[in-house]
Amino acid sequence: MEKQEKIFIAGHRGLVGSAILRNLENQGYSNLLYRASSEMDLRNQQEVLEFFKSEEPEFVFLAAAKVGGIIANNTYPADFIRDNLMIQNNIIDASYKFGVKKLLFLGSTCIYPKFAPQPMKEEYLLTGELEPTNEPYAIAKIAGIKMCQSYNRQYGTKYISVMPTNLYGPYDNFDLETSHVMPALIRKFHEAKENESSFVEVWGTGNPKREFLYVDELADACVFIMNHYEENEIVNIGVGEDISIGDLARLIKDIVGFKGAIRFDSSKPDGTPRKLVDVTKLNKLGWKAETSLEQGIKQAYKWFMDNQL
Rank of each mutant, 00 (worst) to 15 (best):
N134K: 00
G257N: 10
G69W: 11
N307Q: 02
I20G: 01
G257Y: 13
M120D: 00
L32G: 08
E177Q: 14
K275S: 03
P208K: 03
Q149I: 06
K158G: 01
T109H: 03
Y151H: 10
T280W: 09
E2W: 06
E131G: 02
G17E: 11
T205S: 15
S244W: 03
I225R: 04
K268F: 06
R82L: 12
Q295C: 04
L85A: 03
S38D: 09
T280V: 11
E217Y: 13
I20P: 02
Y301G: 01
D175W: 10
K158R: 11
E135Y: 01
I7W: 11
G260F: 14
E290T: 11
Y159L: 05
Y96F: 12
P170A: 15
G169T: 07
P77D: 09
F115S: 00
I234Q: 05
E211Y: 12
Q4N: 14
H228S: 07
N31Y: 09
E39H: 01
L106T: 12
F98D: 10
R13V: 00
N152S: 12
P136D: 05
G28W: 13
Y168C: 02
I234A: 13
W203A: 06
E55S: 10
K121A: 09
F61H: 02
A65S: 14
M40I: 15
V100I: 15
F174T: 02
V48L: 07
A36N: 09
S54C: 11
A300E: 07
E241A: 00
Y171C: 13
P119I: 07
L248N: 05
P113E: 06
S54T: 14
E294H: 13
D41V: 05
G240L: 06
D242V: 04
P119Q: 01
V256A: 07
I9Y: 06
E25I: 15
S198V: 07
E122I: 03
A261C: 07
D247M: 11
S197M: 13
G14H: 03
I142D: 11
I186P: 02
V277Q: 03
N227Y: 06
R210F: 05
Q308W: 14
N166D: 09
M1L: 13
P183Q: 09
E122W: 02
R43N: 10
V16F: 11
G68C: 07
C110H: 11
R153G: 08
S197D: 15
L103T: 01
E191C: 04
E230W: 00
P57V: 10
I145N: 02
D278Q: 12
D41L: 12
S150M: 15
C148G: 04
P208N: 02
F199I: 04
P273V: 01
V235H: 02
I237Y: 13
N44E: 14
I20T: 03
V223G: 08
K288W: 04
Y214H: 13
A192Y: 10
S292Q: 08
Y124W: 05
E131F: 00
A184E: 12
S18E: 07
Q308I: 15
L185Q: 10
F258S: 08
V202N: 14
T133M: 11
E191V: 06
R250A: 05
T205Y: 08
K114I: 01
S266H: 04
A184L: 14
T109Y: 09
L62D: 04
A64I: 08
P273R: 05
Q308M: 14
V200K: 06
I111M: 08
S108N: 05
E177H: 05
G128V: 00
V16S: 08
D278Y: 09
Y168G: 01
Y34P: 00
N134G: 07
W203R: 03
K259G: 06
L309C: 10
D83G: 00
